[in-house]
């Protein structure tokens, strides 16, 4: 019995070792991209084999975006990172110097080959008539969003609301802050991650509106209909740009720089863009976007660089300790 168990364990170890024979890439990504990158990996492996005759295996790692970035900083040997926000890749550049700080200029579309945006989920029939960001500040309404301190997605939510307010109140700082404070007052639960918030809203039926990534809302749309919720697209929202980058130092050590870069460039090819769109990310390629127009309703967007001067700036001003998020927390 014990010997059988031992040989089972040994066999497991050996097979785990065997999988590394060919060129291997490790793609360290954030949570809900599994299906997306699984499809990309297959397509890319085929394309790479056709082009070079080499076979390539891509391993995946998923987790919260900030936590994944921290793992790379602390030595997780990622050849490429595909995270939820540029700030997390900036952190890898700043804290571990594994890639140059101008990494974002190296690939097309500022290294963000696909995008998404922030939308609302409301109960079927929209009983509280929530149509735009202004409604979120209505007294008595309950707004569900994860904690921006622990969730990258929640930071997009927060900045989307802030950006809308900046435009609507024409830069009147006091009014913008009043608006954000009123929205924060309506948040009854701060889950630590996006999935927790979805669960709170959909399964526990708490709250009137959930702020969510469009791709995640679409991804779970089949279950959503069953759960009695629907998507509302606000008048304007933030362009959520999940970035990708080769981790130079690690790739150089593994001798995978060329294949890693080809892998990320593949995301911008028509084939890669098509896979992104089928996995509910908005493609950059206009031709592909046109084909999926029905899936992605038009929405006016602003970018983090235009509205906030980039992630470093936004993080410092809003989310670091003592930032606007801490200041505008209601006294409970």
């Amino acid at each position: 019995m014990r010997r059988a168990l031992f040989s089972l364990v040994l066999a497991g170890l050996l097979t785990a070792g065997a999988a590394r024979a060919d060129t291997t890439l490790l793609n360290v990504s954030y949570d809900p991209t599994r299906e997306f990158y699984r499809a990309i990996n297959q397509a890319f492996a085929a394309a790479w084999k056709a082009k070079t005759g080499e076979s390539v295996t891509i391993n995946q790692s998923h987790g919260g975006s900030g936590k994944q970035a921290r793992s790379v900083i602390d030595g997780l040997e990622a050849d490429v990172v595909t995270l939820a926000l540029a700030y997390d890749i900036d952190a890898i550049a700043d804290h571990a110097r594994l890639l140059p700080s101008d990494w974002q200029a190296r690939l097309p579309d500022r290294s963000t080959p696909y995008t998404s945006t922030i939308v609302f989920l409301v109960r079927t029939g929209n009983p509280k008539r929530i149509t735009d960001w202004g409604d979120l500040a209505r007294p008595g309404l309950q707004v569900i969003t994860p904690n921006p301190k622990t969730s990258g997605g929640a930071r997009w939510n927060y900045l989307a609301a802030w950006g809308w307010a900046e435009r609507t109140y024409r830069g009147d700082a006091a009014k913008v802050r009043d608006y954000i404070a009123a929205v924060l007052k309506n948040v009854p639960v701060f889950d630590s991650g996006a999935r927790g918030s979805t669960n709170t809203f959909v399964q526990r039926r708490i709250g009137d509106v959930l702020l969510a990534w469009e791709n995640e809302a679409l991804l779970s749309s089949r279950e959503l209909a069953e759960a009695g919720v629907e998507i509302v697209v606000p008048s304007v929202s933030i362009l959520a740009e999940p970035p990708v980058a080769v981790v130079d130092t690690v790739a150089a050590r593994h001798g995978t720089t060329a294949v890693a870069e080809a892998y990320l460039r593949f995301l911008s090819t028509p084939e890669g863009q098509d896979i992104a769109a089928r996995n509910f990310y908005r493609p950059r390629d206009p031709a592909v976007a046109k084909r999926f127009a029905a899936q992605f309703p038009p929405v006016a967007t602003f970018t983090i660089d235009d509205a906030f001067g980039g992630w470093r700036q936004a993080q410092k001003l809003h989310f670091d300790d003592g930032g606007s998020f801490d200041q505008l927390q209601p006294k409970r």
């Binding site: 921290r70 952190a91 300790d321």
Partner: peptide
């Protein structure tokens, strides 16, 4: 965890 998320 919040501190760690801020790379602090």
């Amino acid at each position: 965890v919040t501190r760690l998320e801020q790379y602090d």
